[in-house]
């Protein structure tokens, strides 16, 4: 890949490597998408049969991934992209953690 276009450094306290966009668009996007799939099954409508939320969550997974991936590719401000992704990561990880601990049951 054209390294110059994808390897912008994020300055400041984050101190991320020059491959920041790779990390954001690759592993972090995938991780955030998986977490969002997990949490969306909690808030999506269950329907009368109680299965709609499960199907919707799995159907939405590739859509969520594609939206986040394209956002990271198109976003010029890498600090903002980093903030958005880590925000989504922590918010969804918190919900997953709470649901596993039985807080919603």
């Amino acid at each position: 890949m054209n390294l110059q276009r994808f390897t912008q450094t994020i300055d400041g306290p984050l101190g991320l490597s020059r491959y920041a966009r790779y990390w954001l668009a690759g592993p972090l996007t995938l991780l955030v998408s998986i977490l969002m799939m997990a949490t969306s099954s909690l808030w999506l409508p269950r329907g009368e049969a109680g299965v709609d939320n499960l199907v919707y969550a799995m159907v939405l997974f590739p859509v969520i991934w594609a939206v986040i991936f394209m956002y990271v590719v198109l976003e010029s401000d890498l600090k903002r992209a980093t903030g958005v992704l880590f925000g989504l990561f922590f918010a969804n990880a918190l919900v997953v953690g709470l649901s596993i601990s039985g807080a919603f049951s």
């Binding site: 799939m37 997990a38 099954s41 909690l42 969550a57 997974f61 919900v95 997953v96 649901s99």
Partner: peptide, 9 residues
């Protein structure tokens, strides 16, 4: 999907 959703839901 199934293993992940099984954890939360």
């Amino acid at each position: 999907g199934l293993p992940v959703i099984a954890m939360t839901a």
